[in-house]
Design a protein around this nucleic acid. Structure first.
Lengths: 239, 239
DNA sequence: TTGTTATTATCTCATTATGGGACAATAATA
DNA sequence: TATTATTGTCCCATAATGAGATAATAACAA
């Protein structure tokens, strides 16, 4: 547990009582997924998160945390809300975690304090992510939004709010260019929208709308071997 | 300066390095206004702000700050962004303030530290506000958005971001019911929208849109004494 | 009383956007 | 060569929006 001791020793490096939590969205097999960490010795999962260094901007802190968990740089990132109700991180809960990990540090006031957490959501290309646990966790895995495991603190609420924000900004933020691979079919783009919005869309009208935005380039056809007309591949115009 | 000493003595009451800044919008004489504080002994104005108590939710802290500056309770409030770049509050700047106020406290590390600030915007009925300075300020006054004075820190940027957020959420948030008095004419509502959006709107189409939302109740006519047709008064339906 | 004037409240019509069905094109397979 | 499962378009009814035109009316002037 040397890592943990180092961590506690370095407390002056960080802004106290302030954390950053990241909801990392990916899209795979027609489903929206979230990257989560399994906490060591506990039957609980948590969002990738961390603290803000004294000389570090909050967006930089989020990018650093994201890079550590995914291996990716310059990820698409949006601050969406601060979670700071008085009762969100109960001492009892943190205490439970600390007992298992490091009984001596139970009285360490720093980790038992109440935290205000800045919520970010990130959009990543699922296929490019290399999930990496941190020193508090054993695994780092993707979960379907529909089948989230038991989550620590108010992390379920944070994920929910992130999704709501994503829905609202879906049209204005060109979400597809971050969640899909370089090239994709119109059907894949549509099913991404359908998954996020949780509602069916009409093929014809969706295509009309997307093409009218003038943000897509049509590339060659994709021959999948299926017994039907081959769909076009698209990519987002870079501008 | 006893108040200031009390304030510094009570530092353990608050979450360190975290502040709340409120952009309080009002509407008067067809103009959008912001409530600002004149800092004592400095040619600078600042947003109403404060700190979060250890046992207080961040929204509660914002409401408390708002009540202290306006005398109003249960104000309409939205969290809109966190300002936390590494260089936003330079030590030099705070030091300048402290020199004037209280030379002994210059070395007080607490107030010289870097701050992360949660930005809220509030919508209030201009006519009901009783502007009240805090212990760091001499005056508390309304300013037109178009004629802001010299502002401390990054407060001009904070105000700008608040206005942008207000514009984007204008349609979904029924802004009028918070910025206008109980009853108002359609023209007043329209000029509120025009002021926020900074663009002219057409009378006929604006009225059609507003009435179609089914959120307004038409009351009696307003006889102003002007030599023309008297406009109807409206109020927002309560539901 | 009877215009006159400045607004306010509606109406109308063209244009654009959206919802929803229909149909032709086509890649593999029978 | 016909069949099948999709994909890419087209068309039309309806709804929303932009923009001008017209009617109503409160005070005032003649």
């Amino acid at each position: 547990m040397n890592e943990l001791e180092d961590f506690l020793a370095l407390k002056h490096r960080f802004i106290p009582q302030l954390s950053v939590d990241c909801v990392i969205f990916g899209f795979h097999n027609q489903q929206l997924k979230v990257l989560l960490l399994k906490l060591k010795n506990l039957d609980l999962w948590a969002l990738p998160g961390g603290y803000v260094e004294q000389s570090e901007g909050i967006d930089d802190a989020a990018q650093r945390i994201l890079e550590e968990r995914t291996g990716l740089r310059d990820i698409y990132l949006e601050q969406f809300r601060v979670f700071g109700s008085a009762d969100r991180s109960t001492k009892e809960f943190i205490q439970k975690i600390m007992e298992v990990h490091h009984p001596e540090s139970m009285n360490e006031p720093w980790v038992l304090q109440r935290y205000v957490s800045i919520g970010y959501y990130a959009l990543v290309d699922f296929s490019k992510v290399n999930p990496t646990p941190d020193f508090l966790s054993e695994y780092c895995e993707w979960f379907e939004m529909k089948q989230l495991p038991k989550l620590a603190f108010d992390h379920r609420e944070i994920i929910q709010k992130a999704l709501e924000t994503l829905r609202i900004t879906l049209d204005s933020k060109l979400v597809g260019s971050n969640l899909l691979p370089e090239t994709f079919t119109m059907m894949e783009l549509q099913s991404l929208y359908e998954t996020i919005l949780e509602m069916p869309l009409r093929r014809n009208n969706f295509q009309r709308k997307m093409l009218s935005l003038d943000i897509l380039e049509r590339i060659e056809k994709l021959y999948t071997g299926a017994a039907n007309k081959a769909p076009y591949l698209y990519r987002f115009k870079k501008s």
